[in-house]
Design a protein around this nucleic acid. Sequence first.
DNA 1: AATCGTTGTATGGATTGAGATACACCGGTT
DNA 2: AACCGGTGTATCTCAATCCATACAACGATT
Lengths: 235, 235
Amino acid sequence: MTSDPGADGHGTAALVRDGVEFGERDRALLREIERTGSVAAASSNLGRSRPRDLSRIETLEETFGELVERRRGGSGGGGSQLTDTGDQLLARYERLQVALTATAQVPETVLQGTVTDLSGELAEVDTPVGRVRGLHDDVTVDDQLQVRIGADSITLLDPGSDPEPDATSARNRLVGTITGIDRGETVLTVHVAVGDADFQALVTDNSAQRLDLHENREVVLTWKATATRLVSESR
Amino acid sequence: MTSDPGADGHGTAALVRDGVEFGERDRALLREIERTGSVAAASSNLGRSRPRDLSRIETLEETFGELVERRRGGSGGGGSQLTDTGDQLLARYERLQVALTATAQVPETVLQGTVTDLSGELAEVDTPVGRVRGLHDDVTVDDQLQVRIGADSITLLDPGSDPEPDATSARNRLVGTITGIDRGETVLTVHVAVGDADFQALVTDNSAQRLDLHENREVVLTWKATATRLVSESR
DNA sequence: AATCGTTGTATGGATTGAGATACACCGGTT
DNA sequence: AACCGGTGTATCTCAATCCATACAACGATT
């Protein structure tokens, strides 16, 4: 039952399949090959060993499929270009890296909870602030777990103009009190106390003004069940 | 201007600081130390070399601060326990790993765009589907970039009951047509065409029924600017 | 004082990753 | 045929990582 401060240092991702890791070095190589059209030029530009890089591509290809189409001789002496598979692998990798960077920059509210109900990919969890719904992976009723909610998922509403949701809505909804506002340039981090829990929501300057957000003000927090991560503690 | 299919293989994270990477092996070690209260037992249980693990802890500590308080002699012969710093580092690492796992499971809509306006952490981007607002890092006007929107960020609304937002709202809002619905057990992936762009939104069964979502139906998509990632292409 | 079970330290060996160097092969161009 | 500039292959060396083994030191307990 805490809010998680931003990361110290940065995160780096790797895409793993059958024990082979596609990481930042590999990304850089493929991008440079794409740019130059040549493994030789790419390796040279990156200050790396061409035979080593060629060997590395082969290792990656054994696991991820053909990534680079290499041509020997011909006009220009030969050359290389990324395959569609190579493009897709890069896109996947870069997506992971973006997610890491975003995570590091966005506060997260973490609650402890107990699973009370399962319904497909969704689970209902009893937490100190009440019932919360979220996406789970392989939990069972009575499991202890963490509820993780990114500050960029939470929408703040004026209690007066918030329509009470009907019972079929899968949005989580709580009422809390603003305990502080950290100002960025045009994005604010709003701290909201709900019981003993400290929620954090990212809000734009415009929205904060429209809603007249200030300390001690009561607000409604809503966020989608599908944006709520339920994480088993038995890792 | 595409939707990004789910990842193949899984992602793995590392927390990097001053060239030192805290990764999965390190996490497992710290968690086992926490559980057993002993480096010796942890190493043994993990089938690893104790001197090596002790050396590894020292390396990590040079960069991340004191992670494990080690005691030599005394009752029980000695023992070890995680420091607060160790706890926090683990929390940070695990948060990254959760983000990766979530990313791998949630479709993402990716649009190409050009920066038209900057306002603090927010930028406005001209895309094929219109103006989109999102969080950026260090872009300038006229930059080409990618707009990334997770399917778990998008809320679908009935056009008839959607209040038109006033101009100060920082929510992105588009109108589209449902082109397909992929059914999970209780969470659906709804494909929505907006012009030539294919958006994907995660929606619960309950919400889909309440909104009567089906193919060819017109819907409103909204999502927060703060949940929109703007990614430079010059990486 | 001896014993216990932990941490602390040193040494050696194996494996893997990665750079440096050299030669071979290819197909288009001159 | 010779040349060009790429890919393909082989060999060597070095550094980093990590396991195995052994001995030393510590403080509580007997």
